[in-house]
């Protein structure tokens, strides 16, 4: 296991951060804007989000680089800005953390599908290598490959991230199938656990897709399938439209009530995904303190 992960596990459970997208929207990220580009155009507002989580007590914060791969940026005519956007993203989070939190840089999916021949494995590997080395060069403490729906793409991204020598977390979205415990591509937690471990992931887990209740059975299955530490970042429920506004129904306290069940099933790293904010981090910390 990577020495940094080993060190972190001594203080487990470790509190990570909450959503970035939701927070950036609150700060004026408008429709159609590329969130990752804000690292260059609006670094102060991105820093506010990072600082929000550092101040709430996140031990690990991520970066605003989820979509900063050449495929996603290419749709915003910014494919050539991969290095600059990722570098700025790490710098912003590092500045905000100021040594109080570690910065694990985010790598999200390419938005292309291997299974339909949309993209080749080789070009995905190249894109993720480009992003991972930019994140590493800018001084990230680790890399989180997250929100992956296809295990094959996740494995390619994990290998690219591992090549930097940084610790790598690999997190999938389980929201499909009869029991909502498969990825969109039908991959089971057991299959993902095996494939991600083989690719060299230092920790594996789940994020996005469903609310925290739905994470408990997935966490249990992953725990039974692997000896690796588990990373969990659920949504604050599923988004609903109320009078034209998007609302996530699960509040921070309700969210935190399910934290003990995740801890009992082996979760080591805990935070939130879509719809969560600083108050969720505060409540997660409170729930963990209550358990200790």
């Amino acid at each position: 296991m990577h020495a940094l992960i080993e060190l972190l596990l001594k203080e487990a459970p470790v509190v990570t951060d909450g959503s970035w997208g939701t927070q950036l929207q609150k700060r004026g990220l408008s429709r159609g804007e590329c969130p990752d580009m804000w690292n260059l155009s609006n670094p102060d507002r991105v820093r506010e989000v990072a600082a929000l989580y550092v101040n709430a007590g996140s031990r690990i914060i991520l970066t605003n680089t989820f979509g900063a791969n050449r495929f996603v940026l290419g749709k915003f005519q910014a494919a050539e800005k991969v290095v600059g956007i990722n570098g700025a993203g790490v710098k912003i989070s590092k500045d905000a953390a100021a040594g109080r939190a570690l910065v694990f840089a985010s790598i999200g999916p390419s938005g292309k599908m291997l299974v339909s021949g949309d993209v080749t494995e080789a070009s995905l590997a190249e894109a993720f290598e480009e992003q991972a080395s930019a994140l590493s060069a800018a001084g990230a403490d680790g890399i989180v490959v997250e929100t992956m729906m296809d295990i094959n793409e996740a494995v390619i991204a994990v290998r690219a991230a591992k090549a930097t020598g940084l610790p790598v977390i690999a997190s999938m979205v389980y929201d499909s199938g009869k029991a909502k415990d498969r990825t969109m591509m039908g991959n089971t937690p057991e299959h993902c656990a095996e494939a991600l471990a083989a690719a060299g992931a230092d920790a594996i887990g789940a994020n996005c897709g469903q609310g925290i209740e739905g994470f408990i059975p997935v966490c249990k299955k992953l725990n039974a399938a692997t000896a690796l530490p588990l990373w969990m970042k659920p949504n604050a429920g599923l988004p609903e439209m109320v009078n034209g506004e998007v609302v996530y129904r699960t509040g921070a306290e309700e969210f935190a009530r399910h934290v003990p069940a995740l801890l009992e099933n082996g979760a080591c790293f805990l935070g939130g995904c879509c719809g969560t904010g600083a108050e969720f981090i505060t409540e997660i910390r409170r729930a963990i303190e209550g358990k200790k």
Partner: peptide
């Protein structure tokens, strides 16, 4: 729809 097939199966 029933969750027996996934996207790759459909494709």
């Amino acid at each position: 729809r029933e969750g027996d097939y996934f996207l790759p199966d459909v494709l």
